[in-house]
Write a protein that binds this DNA or RNA. Sequence first.
DNA 1: CGCACGAGTAAAGCACCTTTACTTTTGAGC
DNA 2: GCTCAAAAGTAAAGGTGCTTTACTCGTGCG
Lengths: 157, 157
Amino acid sequence: MSANDPLKDTELTFLLGMAFQLALAEFVRRLDAEGYDDLRPVHGLAFQAIGAGGITSTELATRLGVTKQAAGQIVTYLEGRGYVRRDEHAAGGRRRLVVLTDQGREHLAVAGRTLHALERRVGAELGEGGVDLLREQLAVLIRELSEGDPPPLRPTW
Amino acid sequence: MSANDPLKDTELTFLLGMAFQLALAEFVRRLDAEGYDDLRPVHGLAFQAIGAGGITSTELATRLGVTKQAAGQIVTYLEGRGYVRRDEHAAGGRRRLVVLTDQGREHLAVAGRTLHALERRVGAELGEGGVDLLREQLAVLIRELSEGDPPPLRPTW
DNA sequence: CGCACGAGTAAAGCACCTTTACTTTTGAGC
DNA sequence: GCTCAAAAGTAAAGGTGCTTTACTCGTGCG
């Protein structure tokens, strides 16, 4: 019943954790190999959140589920590395719009390709429905537990 | 295509992360409500790893993917709280066998019930195949990315 | 009986986030 | 126009929890 497959006895919550950490570790490992060894996992989330349109530090903080000071530190780090820039914000005020530099956009593209390659690799092993079915199931779970808007993806437990 | 459902545009890796963190947060929230507010997520993993048979600190360290010092600190904390005990180890040496106390076993039982309730709640929302299909897909993903034995579930990214 | 090895412990270091406290800019109400 | 609350951002210290470095203890092998 169990001796031959420890995963059978592992709680769903922990299966999710293992799957996440393995996927993330593989993602970071590949990026390291591409020369992005100055970026931590949380930076990947930041890049996704900044995206094409830019974002304010405070909004980034919300998306990452951390304080705005922490978000500010992350932005400063990425700025120092040349991945992002603090521009004027159209809405004025004290606001600054954090946008990707060319280098940042390039990284985002590489990260996207890497994640998609990973997804394809996993999809090839999944049975019928493939990765789309898994995605849909995860979406159902997320909607059920978050009761509405997508939750922040915090860098620590 | 996307404006109405941000999850559609979210990378699989990050969906896994959100699902994991939501499930874990709900788990901890329920345990808090039951009076276990002295326990952090990593302790849940420790309880699972110690289980019925006990474990050594070093083995626990491996399972959690941390140093043995960190594992020792966790054990000391749980010991101080009355959840575990350091017994003699049958194999002798400097080894100590970390085992659950009655209080620890009770917590493990409560945690198990809580996780199963969570799993049922999610399962009710999932379509055909239900939670078993999701578990199997996650197992496939984990086996693919870990190439063999189940990976540690580290407390930080 | 000497010694390497593995378990465990101790203490300092450090990474990364939070807390507390402040400044700057805007806009709404009187 | 002036006041002031609200929100963005910044600064600096604090804290948690892990790692690093370095050690001790017990065993078994030669």
